[in-house]
Design a protein around this nucleic acid. Structure first.
Lengths: 204, 204, 204, 204
DNA sequence: GATGAATGAGGTTTCATTCAT
DNA sequence: CATGAATGAAACCTCATTCAT
């Protein structure tokens, strides 16, 4: 019998979240039972999960929060370092793809949880509207670029939705075994986006 | 008590598939239990499902097949009626969005099943490679358009993946309660794609 | 492995109710888990209980209903055969004690369920008001006896409550191992009640 | 966060017992988990209960002891102040009902624990024999009253059991929201008892 | 004395599926 | 073809209790 290991709540929670991400990424949302998560994390009992999370939904929300925070911390500073709206969007694309390539499991788990988690009443915990704040952000940058003459006129909602979707697809694409080189994929996608939005000059 | 109804196997299967699509679209993949599907279909016993489908996986695959066939029958003839590669792709986009707007439940169920169904060994039944044949098709049309001088040069894989993803996102977008008018969405998306691919002239 | 036994829902439900009564009477309300009830009834799985009862509360309510019906069927006809209000109450006492002596397990289970069953919100399923209809009945007979000059004047609510309580206590008393002879206990209690209510003559 | 409070063992035990009484009275025996008791008492951990009581059964026995002692201290002196056996029994009844009216929670908890607590082997911790000493006491007073010519002859065991039961019922009756005035209830019950036992004169 | 983390047993319930009718 | 009863596995969660600090 393994010795009783005592960790701080924070560390234990992170450990459980990581284990859950692994299970979901490898075996799918439905396979993410407490028993499997506990086994993968080397916990003595599933009760330990219940001790640190009020609910299974609570654990799932923690996964979303953790992945989202990690992505934000990686991508945001690189966007902030840019000086023009078009450059910001370009960097957003490139940094996002890089992050996806670096953390394929987290992204797969995030997608699975977002698509499957439901409230007790059956309504989705994360409906399509979950993307709206981010889409609004993207649209704002596009508007700025349009006003600055960096981009042509187009429907920013359709463009933002399509860009967001293209990035989600890129996440899967760059984590395939026979995957394209992520840097090249990012470059191509950015070029495609620049062309779609009618940018005059594309970064070399 | 409802009278015992006897139907031909084919009709019964279709009824069960439809019911399952409704449950998945409304309440999610995990809620698609035999009990719920049977109740929604007005069946007296879940055994009837087991009788007509060897497996739960069998039922799920039947859903995918049914939706896919319906979409194919709607979209394919309209593509075939076009005369140039670029026009074919344009029609593909427009017809797809129209189909999504007309059958939101089917699309939502299809997405859910594709994302969640696993084989007994845990591997996904529909991995990312499921899209490959369709992507290859799209890439082929793009190549033809490029050779014909209708489109500029770009990485067709990235473009095809992104288009496929943008269409999936469109499906959700046009089935939201406060949804954009599908026809307009289709037009905007087609224009965006035309611009991204460097098409000279866009259909009015 | 035992052969699969198929029973009608009605028979199976009765079997489960009986088993549950036995467990509660022998080992208490808290011990009445599905596992123990199933084992005592020789069921292959606790799922069979869930199949026949929507809830654990549903099973508990079935116990109360079953015991109550059995007692009613035994006691009521004997009351109806009497010709005066005082004689009816006398017979009520005697028949009740006899029933308790004949079915000690059922009575103990009934008491346990009534005292412990709670609704989901925590409120008692059977509060003190559960006795009110029966108490009202008893008070009505007492009033009739008073008007007929068979009984003196007294507060019928207090008398009815006390009689009901004395009978409950009698149930325990006559089911003790070293128990008094039930017939004698019934006679003594009836005499005590007659005296308390100021009856002129007591049945010999 | 609440400051860490250090109390003497005695005070802490009493605090826990009070909290447990409250939980049992409000939500029933089954709801009396360490978690709920600790929360209601404002304790930071259930371990504190385990520290002060060897067992859950130990806590339950402490509840019974505490309530019993409180009742004894209230009722006994008033009985001792009487001069005749009949007067003692009269005062016992009146004082008991007054106590029940003043401490409804304690009584409800006492009843619940007595009815449900079991030993490890499943046998009741407080069987029907728990009442025997008190019943013997009551019977002794009745015998004395009979010898003194204050009461008629009757079976004292039946009378004592019935009186004890009538008092338990009174406890519930006077704690109902629409309750009878306890003083009046006590008077009526005492009169009923006097009449049942053939007392010559009843105290005014 | 007090605390928060950890433990393992066991609770109800739901599931897909099988079987006899 | 259809049905309702039966099955055994496994789900989440709560429990009293122990342990290290």
């Amino acid at each position: 019998m393994a010795a009783r290991v005592r960790l701080s709540a924070e560390v234990r929670r992170a450990q459980i979240v990581d284990s859950a991400i692994g299970v979901i990424a490898d075996d799918g949302f439905a396979a993410a039972t407490f028993a499997r998560i506990a086994r993968r994390a080397g916990l003595s009992s599933t009760a330990l999960i219940s001790y640190h999370f009020t609910d299974k939904a609570d654990l799932m929300r923690a996964i979303v929060g953790a992945v989202f925070a990690k992505a934000y911390d990686f991508i945001r500073p690189r966007m902030d370092a840019q000086s023009s709206p078009a450059a910001i969007l370009h960097e957003f694309i490139v940094a996002s793809v890089e992050f996806y390539a670096a953390h394929p499991q987290a992204i797969r788990a995030l997608t699975a949880v977002r698509g499957n988690l439901r409230r007790a009443d059956g309504r989705p915990e994360f409906g399509p509207e979950i993307h709206d704040p981010e889409l609004a952000q993207l649209q704002e940058f596009m508007h700025q670029a349009q006003r600055a003459g960096e981009m042509a006129t187009f429907d920013t909602r359709v463009a933002a939705v399509s860009l967001r979707a293209a990035l989600d697809a890129a996440a899967l694409e760059v984590s395939r075994p026979d995957r394209t080189d992520p840097a090249r994929y990012a470059r191509e996608l950015a070029r495609l986006f620049a062309s779609a939005t009618g940018q005059k000059a594309v970064k070399p």
